[in-house]
Simulated assay, not measured.
Amino acid sequence: MQSRMAVAASASALALTVTATGCSEEQDYGLGERVRIGIKFDQPGLGLERTDGSFTGFDVDVARYVARELGYDKDDIEFKETRSADRETALNSGDVDFVVATYSITDARKAQVDFAGPYLLAHQDLLIRIRGDIKEVADLNGRKLCSVTGSTSAQNVKKNLAPNAELTEVDSYSECLEALKNGDVDAVTTDDAILAGYAAQDQYVNKFEIAGLRLSNENYGIGVKKGNTALVDGINSALEKMVDDESWYRAVLDNFSPANYNYEPAPGIGVVVK
């Protein structure tokens, strides 16, 4: 009788310990019953909302994997559109728990938010027509270059790399790709991962290629509200596991392979390439 009571008491104590541990971990992350993740809604191959309301892309796959490792089912994820200009505000206001949205790690941004990762090393590059004659960035001088209005990539080309390029600025990269397809421009510039996502769309497969010039290093990280080191550590552990079990590589191939994207190997967690 006493033995059975002792076993029962031990079991109860163990259950309480497990429950308390689970609660403390959730509180340490600062997350609720649902996790709110900021992504892009309009970037094919990275973060795209389909017409049926579902989401697809490499950033989406990374976000779902991380959320699962943090203890959330697919149905417990709420994706929230987070445009580039709104990422810091969304994190600091608590509108999202973390951001996975082609978010390059920079010193200026690190002053406002914390980062896990990086989870992808991208580069500024050019998208050109297959078998075109642009072999290096200087070949853009006298040619028509397309990017979105206010793009730092386009300004980098004009200011530092090919000052005599004729720059066309439009509202979206989709407009740039249509102009490239129609011969109205000679190249499109932004990060190679973004270019690969657009070029992987069915209507553009086998029409374009990435020049492979690697004009900058863009370390994509996962943004977290400043000071939440427990969440940063939890996300980093999830990213390491994603690489180790090869889910990271499958996600790259699933989203970028139609564009023949010559992607970099998975970066080391915490290793920012200057």
Rank of each mutant, 00 (worst) to 15 (best):
residue 6 A to L: 07
residue 6 A to G: 01
residue 6 A to H: 11
residue 6 A to W: 12
residue 7 V to N: 05
residue 7 V to P: 05
residue 7 V to Y: 13
residue 7 V to E: 09
residue 7 V to I: 13
residue 7 V to H: 08
residue 8 A to Q: 13
residue 8 A to L: 11
residue 9 A to M: 13
residue 9 A to S: 05
residue 10 S to L: 14
residue 10 S to P: 04
residue 10 S to G: 02
residue 11 A to P: 00
residue 11 A to T: 14
residue 11 A to L: 14
residue 11 A to C: 04
residue 11 A to K: 06
residue 12 S to P: 05
residue 12 S to M: 12
residue 12 S to F: 15
residue 12 S to A: 13
residue 12 S to I: 11
residue 12 S to K: 03
residue 13 A to L: 14
residue 13 A to C: 10
residue 13 A to G: 09
residue 13 A to K: 06
residue 13 A to H: 09
residue 13 A to N: 07
residue 13 A to T: 07
residue 13 A to D: 08
residue 13 A to R: 14
residue 13 A to Q: 05
residue 14 L to T: 10
residue 14 L to Y: 12
residue 14 L to C: 12
residue 15 A to S: 10
residue 15 A to G: 09
residue 15 A to I: 13
residue 15 A to W: 12
residue 16 L to S: 08
residue 16 L to E: 08
residue 16 L to P: 01
residue 17 T to L: 12
residue 17 T to A: 13
residue 17 T to E: 00
residue 17 T to N: 03
residue 17 T to P: 04
residue 17 T to C: 08
residue 17 T to Q: 06
residue 17 T to V: 11
residue 17 T to Y: 06
residue 18 V to K: 11
residue 18 V to H: 03
residue 18 V to E: 02
residue 18 V to F: 02
residue 19 T to C: 11
residue 19 T to M: 13
residue 19 T to I: 14
residue 19 T to Y: 11
residue 19 T to F: 07
residue 20 A to Y: 12
residue 20 A to N: 12
residue 20 A to F: 00
residue 20 A to R: 15
residue 21 T to K: 09
residue 21 T to V: 03
residue 21 T to W: 06
residue 21 T to C: 03
residue 21 T to D: 01
residue 21 T to L: 08
residue 22 G to I: 13
residue 22 G to T: 10
residue 23 C to Q: 13
residue 23 C to K: 15
residue 23 C to D: 07
residue 23 C to W: 06
residue 24 S to F: 01
residue 24 S to L: 13
residue 24 S to N: 02
residue 25 E to V: 14
residue 25 E to T: 11
residue 25 E to I: 15
residue 26 E to F: 02
residue 27 Q to I: 13
residue 27 Q to Y: 01
residue 27 Q to G: 05
residue 28 D to A: 15
residue 28 D to V: 15
residue 29 Y to A: 07
residue 29 Y to N: 02
residue 29 Y to E: 10
residue 29 Y to D: 01
residue 29 Y to I: 14
residue 30 G to E: 13
residue 31 L to F: 01
residue 31 L to I: 08
residue 32 G to F: 07
residue 32 G to W: 06
residue 32 G to C: 05
residue 32 G to D: 08
residue 33 E to F: 15
residue 33 E to S: 09
residue 33 E to M: 12
residue 33 E to H: 14
residue 33 E to Q: 09
residue 33 E to A: 08
residue 33 E to N: 10
residue 34 R to W: 03
residue 34 R to L: 12
residue 34 R to Q: 06
residue 34 R to G: 02
residue 35 V to M: 08
residue 35 V to W: 03
residue 35 V to E: 02
residue 35 V to N: 04
residue 35 V to T: 06
residue 35 V to F: 05
residue 35 V to S: 07
residue 36 R to F: 11
residue 36 R to T: 09
residue 36 R to A: 02
residue 36 R to K: 15
residue 36 R to W: 01
residue 37 I to C: 00
residue 37 I to M: 09
residue 37 I to V: 13
residue 37 I to K: 07
residue 37 I to P: 00
residue 37 I to E: 04
residue 38 G to A: 02
residue 38 G to N: 04
residue 38 G to W: 14
residue 38 G to L: 10
residue 38 G to K: 06
residue 38 G to V: 04
residue 39 I to Q: 01
residue 39 I to M: 06
residue 39 I to W: 03
residue 40 K to W: 07
residue 40 K to H: 07
